[in-house]
Write a protein that binds this DNA or RNA. Structure first.
Lengths: 146, 146
DNA sequence: CTGCATCCTTCTAGATACTG
DNA sequence: CAGTATCTAGAAGGATGCAG
């Protein structure tokens, strides 16, 4: 949608209104959303559901490493936020399908933009991290790690 | 630590390679980055530094609500990740300026995209949240919260 | 199959006090 | 001014067992 980013639309270039009034969790939309998708599994689940609808155990197998508890919690939160919809099939062995709502789907593009950046620059971050954490004479600057 | 994994460009549209191999924190670049900026203050600090360079206490006052400890930790992490640079002026009352590195500045556009989405759709999220948390007859569906 | 309840461990963030 | 050190409360995450 944007070719060259000569002008950044919101929060970065012009948004910040005041000296940031004591930011409560729900107060700042950006912080609120970032903290949601900043957890361990949300993005992964959203991305999977963005490709197609999934059953519960299907997600459980696809992510592999997530516990039932966390998968349930993640889906509950996403459902409560209106990003994911739940469809129950009253079959004999219960079957539940999850999918993204239109709102959830609308998150995909901007999320993709950030994911793109992460993939593109993760090497630089890792390099910088190793430079700071490992050896390097800069440790003498009094930065004994934390 | 070069990516022997077939690193894909855009996680959302075509990326997901395998059934997601047990995702360790540092393993997935996207998860790694998201967890960094998903904390309480990082985005706020990055955005402020994106507008201009700031001194420590200047940031402390601008954010207002952040403790010295958390501001220091946030800046340390950002510095270690190569997103923020620290400049010390050896004056009599010590003065330290913080600013974004080129890498940090490159994060602004994609971050802005997500911030844009958050601002635009926060109302819907809040509405859905209230619908699920509050009253609503749907509670009869056996969703007594947790 | 789906998912809730309980217990437990680790990580995050805040308050407070102290230093160069 | 610009931090560091300590301590603690709470949230996030995981393991396991039981139920519709």
């Amino acid at each position: 949608m944007s070719g060259t980013h000569t002008e950044v639309p919101s929060l970065v270039s012009a948004p910040l209104p005041h000296p940031v009034p004591a930011d409560e969790y729900g107060a700042c939309p950006v912080t609120d959303v970032l903290r949601r998708i900043g957890d361990k599994w949300t993005v992964l689940v959203v991305v999977l559901l963005g490709r197609r609808r999934h059953r519960f155990n299907e997600l459980h197998r696809s992510v592999d490493g997530i516990s039932q508890r966390m998968l349930t919690r993640t889906l509950r939160t996403l459902e409560q936020d209106g990003l994911v919809e739940r469809e129950v099939h009253p079959t004999v062995p219960p079957s539940v399908e999850y999918g993204l709502t239109p709102l959830g789907r609308s998150l995909l593009p901007p999320l993709s933009g950030l994911a793109d950046w992460a993939v593109a620059h993760h090497g630089e971050i890792t390099a910088a991290r190793g430079r700071a954490t490992g050896e390097d004479g800069q440790m003498a600057r009094s930065r004994p790690a934390q």
